[in-house]
Design a protein around this nucleic acid. Structure first.
Lengths: 206, 206
DNA sequence: ACAGCATTGTTGGCACCGCCTACATTGACG
DNA sequence: CGTCAATGTAGGCGGTGCCAACAATGCTGT
């Protein structure tokens, strides 16, 4: 009954969006980046996409579900970035660590709010399985890096949890400081180099 | 002044609360700890304290102001705890570092949500001066520790920003992981020891 | 002592939010 | 071509933060 006259392509406002789910996710990430997590509202998202305020609920059962999905894409991209950091660099622990730290901090700087979201969600005891797996996959990359270092005699012996944990903590901590804008200006110059050298000394064989 | 007559404990519902501001802060911290940051609402706080929903606005111009004040008390307590960690331990860098790391992680575990709040706020570019000062005071403690270590020849030479930053990053990162519940169960056993040893190796003289 | 006034609380209203239920439109499949 | 699941819409509910107008209180100066 709507119309045989008004053409679809003008101001395309078809009843079905086509891929609202994906559109919600990308728009949400933009908003998150530009206006922060507090400004993320399902209703505003719906308005932005020209859809009714209840439409998002067809794709995400509640707001948390959307945030979870957003974090999931974040973990996937982070894993991809870290995995790629191994390409084109040497095989020594030092080189691979260097590449991975830079990749991680780079991701953190470019996706500060998203990374924040990713960490605040995994905090939640009842995160989805997919989320836990994604998180697992990326921490496996660190574990693998350390394992290789140990095999090559460039990293001290010991169980992974004990050797890897301080490395992980340092990496995470530095990225978090960078994201929070807490690094002194001078840090831009040598900060990364210093942290990488610090990790190497800390994890060097006894 | 308070009362020689009206006992506190009798459901007194006087028009003026007496010290609503302090009551709001303590109640807010309890709620934060027990039900998480999302459950913090000015209106519910007011209900809990038996005052009208607009009463809090007389003491905090908006919700963020209350959160800022909460974070401020957090920084003050953290500084006190870290300062006290120096008492009763030896004067070597290793001992003092050990004490401070344990104090910091202990505070983080006991005040996880509050610490989260503290960090998410300093993130904000327009935090109050008092907040910035409080944050400064506590990071000064770390700087002081490292300076002493250098003076005693137990920490490598170099400008404070370059030597201290990796230490700070590791400390912060480990505490953050602990707070987020991301540490593997095995970490409870040796995690702290490992991190402290890691920091000592990383910052030892060349 | 007390009048005046700043402080502190109260009431009510606004716009927004997330979530729910009932209904409408669409497209895919038998 | 009819049926039906998937998708989007309309409206309502209780909750939130914030604001403006009003009321009770207690401090302060005369």
């Amino acid at each position: 009954m709507t119309d045989t006259l008004t053409p679809m392509h003008t101001r395309t406002r078809r009843y079905h969006h086509g891929d609202l789910r994906a559109a919600l996710l990308t728009r949400a990430e933009d908003t998150l980046r530009e206006k922060g997590p507090a400004a993320l509202s399902l209703r505003e998202l719906a308005r932005d996409l020209g859809v009714s305020h209840a439409a998002p609920s067809r794709h995400f059962k509640d707001k948390q579900a959307l945030l979870d999905a957003l974090a999931l894409t974040g973990f996937e991209r982070l894993t991809a970035v870290l995995g790629a950091s191994r390409d084109g660099v040497g095989e020594t622990f030092a080189e691979r660590l260097d590449a991975m730290v830079r990749a991680y901090v780079g991701f953190a700087r470019e996706n500060a709010e998203l990374l924040d979201l990713m960490y605040s969600i995994k905090h939640d005891p009842e995160a989805s399985d997919a989320l836990r797996e994604a998180e697992q996959r990326w921490s496996d990359l660190v574990v693998r890096l350390i394992g290789e270092g140990q095999a090559q005699g460039q990293v001290r012996e010991g169980p992974m949890e004990r050797v890897g944990l301080p490395v992980f903590a340092t990496l995470h901590g530095y990225a978090d400081l960078a994201v929070a804008g807490m690094l002194p200006p001078e840090a831009d110059e040598h900060g990364l180099d210093d942290v990488i050298a610090f990790i190497l000394r800390g994890s060097a064989p006894a």
